[in-house]
C-alpha cells in the first residue's frame, strides 16, 4: 500500500474494528478499504449496526482500529498517541454531531472560535473569521446567545460554523439532520453543499436521511461492517 497522494484525503487499508464489551467479540468493521479525495460530498449509509459511526470515529481518530491503517492527509492517524491526535483533529477535522454538542456555557461566538483558540489564532483573526463564518451560515446577530437560547436548526448551524471556521481538511457529520425538521434539514444541506462548492472542503456524512443521500455526490453503503456498494453520481 502506498501512501496517499495530494488529492487523496482519507485512505483506509483493511480497517477492522472488533468490540469486546462483555467478552463476546463483535465485528463492527471487517477490513474496509476506501479512498476519499479532496472536495468530495460523500454519504456513508447503511442499516443500524452496519458500522457507519464506527467508521467515522476511526477515520477521525476518535477511535482506533483493531487492525488496519488509516491515512488522513498523508499521515497515519491510527498510530498517533492522545496528544498528537488532539492536535491533528484540531487542525484537520471539523465535526458536526447529531446532538449538536455545543459547549453549553459558551456563547455562539465563543463556541465557534473555540478551536481557533486552541490553535493559538490571534484575537483579531478569530473575530474576523467568526464573523465571516456566522454570516455564511446565516447566524448574524446571535453571537452573544447561549446554545440554550437557540433553536435546534440554529444550534446545528453554529456546529457547522464551528466545524468549518478553522478550515479543516475534512468535515465529518454524523447524522447531522436527524434531530431537525425536514425544512430546516433541507436548508442546512443546501448550505453545506454551497460551502462545499465554494471552499472545496471535503464533507463526509454518516446518515439514514434520504435528503442527505439525494444530495451526496458519492454514496458508500456499508453492510455488516463491509463496503456493500460504492457509487458516484
Amino acid at each position: 500500500m502506498e501512501q496517499t497522494q495530494n488529492h487523496e484525503v482519507i485512505v483506509t487499508d483493511k480497517v477492522t474494528k472488533i468490540f469486546d464489551p462483555d467478552g463476546i467479540p463483535v465485528n463492527a468493521l471487517n477490513g474496509i478499504d476506501l479512498t476519499i479525495t479532496s472536495g468530495e460530498f460523500t454519504a456513508i449509509v447503511g442499516p443500524s449496526g452496519s458500522g457507519k459511526t464506527t467508521f467515522l470515529n476511526i477515520i477521525s481518530g476518535l477511535d482506533t482500529p483493531t487492525e488496519g491503517k488509516v491515512w488522513l492527509s498523508g499521515k497515519i492517524i491510527s498510530e498517533m498517541n492522545g496528544n498528537e491526535l488532539s492536535d491533528f483533529r484540531r487542525d484537520n477535522i471539523g465535526f458536526i454531531f447529531q446532538a449538536y454538542n455545543l459547549i453549553p456555557v459558551l456563547t455562539v461566538e465563543e463556541n465557534v472560535e473555540y478551536i481557533m483558540l486552541l490553535a493559538g489564532v490571534s484575537k483579531a483573526e478569530r473575530h474576523e473569521r467568526v464573523k465571516k463564518m456566522l454570516k455564511a451560515v446565516g447566524l448574524e446577530g446571535v453571537e452573544d446567545r447561549l446554545p440554550t437560547q437557540l433553536s435546534g436548526g440554529q444550534q446545528q448551524r453554529v456546529a457547522i460554523a464551528r466545524a468549518m471556521v478553522s478550515e479543516p481538511t475534512i468535515i465529518l457529520a454524523d447524522e447531522p439532520t436527524a434531530n431537525l425538521d425536514s425544512k430546516t434539514g433541507n436548508d442546512l444541506l443546501e448550505m453545506m453543499r454551497r460551502l462545499n462548492d465554494e471552499t472545496g472542503m471535503t464533507f463526509i456524512f454518516s446518515t439514514h436521511d434520504p435528503m442527505v443521500m439525494d444530495r451526496a455526490r458519492r454514496l458508500i453503503t456499508l453492510r455488516d461492517g463491509q463496503v456493500d456498494t460504492d457509487e458516484t453520481k
Partner: peptide
C-alpha cells in the same frame, strides 16, 4: 459527554 466533545474538538487531555 461534554468532555468527550471537547476532546473530539482537539482539547488536549491536560487541558
Amino acid at each position: 459527554r461534554e468532555y468527550g466533545v471537547l476532546k473530539a474538538l482537539g482539547t488536549k487531555p491536560r487541558q
